[in-house]
């Protein structure tokens, strides 16, 4: 399989601090890839570079879509990157809390719809149809993610697990090729984690999505991912299948420390 995301020798400096150091990473189409590492290893920084929140100091990021078209994501604004087909969720939930659950997802449809101000004011046939389509599509996504019961609820009133799911729903509404999940299971109980596991697999199998996730829950990571990248101090220290990574002495050392 060909890669969908290709990251070459990416570096990110904050003043004198090198947060990402010559990092290479690729995600193949239809793959679930996990990015793990101790706290402060630079995982979220990596996500922020890829999604355009930070501009990387050096290195290249490419997105190859299904039709074989490649585009460089370097220096693009976050919204342009989302348009290209890369959606993300946030580690610390960032929902639009004063909007309803459905509206949160409808916002996600923004970059796949075209209604202008004039369209909004005159409500021509096209705009009305598009709006109906957005509502229908958003509701469909809520059903898919399993939170359609909360449809008209304010996002801030949702239980924690449902908020995490809504973040995923919102990201799905942007019709991504690759979904970046930043600690989707953080703060979830074992039952919720198990359901999340099933949801992610379902998204891959039914929607043909590729998924790159940061996660600390090793049980989830090991059961879910096809491949794992391990980071420490901004560098990639290991990569491979779950079995390989589990046995890798470098990884064990990074997590548990040197026993000398």
């Amino acid at each position: 399989m060909k890669p969908i995301l290709e990251v070459n020798k990416i570096c990110m400096d904050f003043g004198g601090l090198r947060a990402l150091d010559q990092l290479d990473l690729e995600v193949k189409s239809g793959e679930i890839v996990a990015l793990i590492g101790p706290n402060g290893a630079g995982k979220t920084t990596f996500f922020n570079c890829v999604t355009g929140i930070y501009a990387p100091t050096s290195g290249n990021i490419f997105l190859h879509d299904m039709k074989g078209k490649s585009s460089s994501l370097n220096g693009l604004k976050p919204n342009k990157i989302t348009e290209k087909g890369l959606a993300r969720t946030f580690q610390n939930i960032r929902l639009f809390s004063e909007m309803t659950v459905l509206e949160n997802v409808m916002v996600g449809c923004h970059c796949r719809s075209t209604a202008s101000i004039l369209g909004a004011l005159f409500r021509n046939k096209k705009t009305v149809q598009e709006e109906e389509e957005i509502v229908r599509k958003s509701y469909g996504i809520l059903q898919k993610v399993g939170i359609s019961e909360y449809v008209n609820e304010m996002a801030k009133n949702l239980p924690y697990g449902a908020q995490r799911r809504l973040e995923i729903a919102r990201a799905l509404a942007t019709e991504p090729l690759l979904l970046l999940l930043d600690e989707p299971a953080a703060g979830m109980n074992p039952q919720e984690t198990k359901e999340l596991d099933e949801l992610i697999v379902r998204l891959r199998d039914n929607e043909g999505l590729s998924i790159l996730l940061i996660e600390h829950d090793m049980k989830l990571v090991m059961s879910l991912s096809d491949r794992i990248f391990v980071m420490d101090y901004g560098r990639k220290i290991a990569q491979g299948t779950p079995a390989e990574v589990r046995e890798n002495p470098v990884v064990i050392k990074a997590y548990l420390g040197d026993d000398s």
Binding site: T51, G52, I53, K77, P78, N79, T82, E83, A87, R88, F90, R94, L95, F96, S97, E98, M99, E103, M106, V107, G108, H110, C111, R112, S113, A115, S116, I117, G119, A120, T127, E130, E131, I134, R170, A171, A173, T174
Partner: peptide
């Protein structure tokens, strides 16, 4: 409308709003 939702999203969270593909 679509643009109204974008405004409210911008008010609620600027970074998430951009991540949803909205041109800030």
């Amino acid at each position: 409308s679509r643009i109204g939702r974008a405004w409210i999203a911008l008010r609620e969270d600027e970074i998430a709003c951009q991540a949803m593909g909205i041109d800030k």
